[in-house]
């Protein structure tokens, strides 16, 4: 990989300053970025490590009953410490990648990258979470803007994500066995004011809400409510792992399983 300067700030303010340099790039756990750098698909001048910032670490509940997770918190920490507050989210985190990847990979890193097959975007979108950055708060519905594309501005850092805790939730992942990413993943979250369903891995546009299923489930929260509903295969990803039609079919199957498991 090309060389770069390495910065490890200990406060958000210092990180923002370091990110203002031309071609600076934030480094979370590096589980996607480091392989990308090795392929020479990125060539930052400075890599700003966000893992040494205490105020971006850890998990707590706020006064509004939301689960707040620091942007640099690892998947392993969310899996271990989130279970008591939001079991479905912790269960999802405990199945990302493999144990060594979970010990490095971070919530903020996953969201900033917005891989179309990543698990976290489904959880954040289905929870109607709020993405907090050094500059502002972004609603999940506004944050995800297509494959590898987000509302983040240049140099903006995800410091925290606030998850409203649902009455019931479940994530079902159909694993692509070579990469362990989701071939299709569906996160269903039931709140007092309605059900949210977010799908990852399937669409050419990245994570999306399946609004038809949300309406059906909001009036009747049972797998049977999904009878006859399907997503349009024409916008699904097709590759050697699965055709668009196969992915569209899996979306229905995984949604049913998630509802049944709630």
């Amino acid at each position: 990989m090309y060389n770069f300067d390495f910065a490890k700030p200990s406060t958000i303010a210092d990180a923002v300053k370091a990110m203002s340099e031309e071609d600076a790039q934030a480094l979370g756990g590096g589980q996607t970025l480091i392989p990308t750098l090795k392929q020479r698909l990125a060539a930052p001048s400075t890599l700003v490590s966000l893992t040494g910032i205490p105020e971006m670490q850890g998990i707590c509940m706020d006064d509004a009953g939301r689960l707040c997770i620091g942007g640099a918190t690892t998947h392993a920490t969310v899996a271990a410490e989130g279970a008591a507050h939001y079991p479905a989210l912790a269960a999802m985190a405990s199945h990302i990648g493999d144990p060594a990847v979970r010990n490095r990979g971070t919530l903020g890193g996953s969201l900033a990258n917005n891989d179309p097959s990543a698990c976290y975007p489904a959880a954040v979108l289905a929870s109607g979470a709020t993405v907090v950055t050094n500059a502002r708060e972004i609603a999940a519905d506004d944050y995800f803007q297509g494959m590898f594309t987000t509302a983040l501005d240049e140099g903006e850092i995800i410091t925290e994500v606030k998850f409203p805790v649902p009455e019931a939730a479940n994530y079902q992942k159909f694993v692509q066995p070579a990469s362990r990413f989701a071939l299709v993943g569906v996160f269903v979250a039931k709140y007092a004011d309605g059900v949210r369903v977010a799908v990852t891995g399937a669409s050419e546009d990245g994570v999306f809400r399946w609004s038809e299923a949300e309406e059906a489930l909001s009036s009747d929260f049972s797998a049977g409510a999904l009878d006859g509903l399907s997503v349009d295969a024409s916008t699904m990803i097709g590759d050697l792992h699965g055709t668009p039609e196969y992915r569209a079919h899996l979306v229905s199957v995984m949604t049913r399983r998630a509802v049944a498991a709630c």
Binding site: F6, K8, L27, G30, Q31, I34, P35, K38, L47, S49, T51, A76, D98, P99, A100, V101, N103, R104
Partner: peptide
Amino acid sequence: TSQCGACVVHVNGEAVKACTMFAAE
């Protein structure tokens, strides 16, 4: 490429892939 795990070491007690972490970290 962080697939195989032959490089796993412990950093502060946690298993990590040493090929997917910078020495400076």
